[in-house]
Design a protein around this nucleic acid. Sequence first.
DNA 1: TCTGGGGTCCTAGGACCC
DNA 2: TCTGGGGTCCTAGGACCC
Length: 441
Amino acid sequence: MYALADCNNFFVSCERVFNPTLNNKPVVVLSNNDGCAIARSNEAKALGIPMGCPAFQIKNYTTEHVIMLSAQHVLYRDISNRIMQVLGEVAINLEVYSVDEAFFELPYDDDERNHKLLAQVVSKIYKYIGVPVSIGFAPTRTLAKIASHVAKKDPSNTDRVLGLTIQSDIDNILSRTKIDDIWGIGRRLNAKLLSRGIHYASDFVRLPKSFLQKIGNINLVRTQEELLGLDRVSINPVTIAHKSIMSSRTFGHVIQKRNEISDAVLTFAQACATQLRQEQSAALTVTVYVRGDHFRQDLPFYSNSCTVRMATHTSSAIEIVRHVLIAFNSIFREGFSYRKAGVMVSDIVSAKELQLDIFNGEQEVRHNRLMSAIDKINNRYGAKRIMLAPSINKGEWAPQQNHFNTKSKHLRFYSGMLPQYPSKSKLNAPLDQDEDDACEQ
DNA sequence: TCTGGGGTCCTAGGACCC
DNA sequence: TCTGGGGTCCTAGGACCC
């Protein structure tokens, strides 16, 4: 039996932890650059504001005042870690699927016992951390996703837990589940299926495999099998390293100057290198891309990318920056306006498995020592305190963010100062009234 | 005026091999 | 008129997820 725990309106809920005056109001959290809505409170959803709605179009949906907030991902990550910690205390094989979702297996054979346990988890997370969570459980992950979705939407479900364990219940829910609410069916497949008269999950599960294979690929067949109760999806636990790491940004406005764009690109390169070192891995390939502004009809559009293979796998910022510069110089064209750029590192392996390159061994060792010194300083005094010389220009490309929640904006830099979540021994004990009151405060 | 960032997997088609 | 068969690897692009 798999469970899926899903935080409700996660980024908005995080903001509300620090600013309860946001409760019961339409609130959206905006993407980087204050571009579009990436999280909406229930009140904002009720006004019809869609996911991804550009900030400047929100007024087209409502005359009501909607509170817009700039995203603070460091803070959300910190709160997410605390929630995962609570889940980890009851979960078997916890799979952190995203910042606000995790799959896990359940400890009991008995549906009722599992349900009760999960209801306690939901309530503890709300009491100790302040974020509402819904949990669904079912024989497969895809069904558990649907269950958590229904648990979230159904107002009569007061403990926010739903188990889909009996076939008649599953059939009933599938006949009411629209196909685009199925995990694995996105916009394109939804359109293809709708055009053939398939509207509900109960129709979808009856389609022949050959047809699914034709309009999609093997994953669509797997999705159908999951809905039929066959375990077909696997998720890598978080301990498995990334296959690629990307750092990119849309700039606050278009820029033309080579050194301002290269400055951004070099910052991204160093972010990738830092993350590689954090994960104790190393990459062989770097890709750089630059892009104009899709929305500016008045400017000639240019976009390009370049991939370079390095001599050896590395996490050295010096090596990665050097190759990123080579790639960047090969695609940068004077006379165009740029709005976005990014760096990706790929062909990643664990650093432990690496053998020193026979020609570069000594240099590699020196780089490693230098990098670990830089990491220590940056960990202690703040990210980006020490960077490589090319990226000394500041700011031309910086995103616009003008809507920080004033109650919490200082916290995004110092997430470590948040009060720690109570110890495990306390958690397992029943909550008493004093503790309850303390948490409320 | 204003439109995000970071991932994974699959497939088709080309290059190349014997 | 007529031009093999069977593989592997790589890449770009498309689909999906949050």
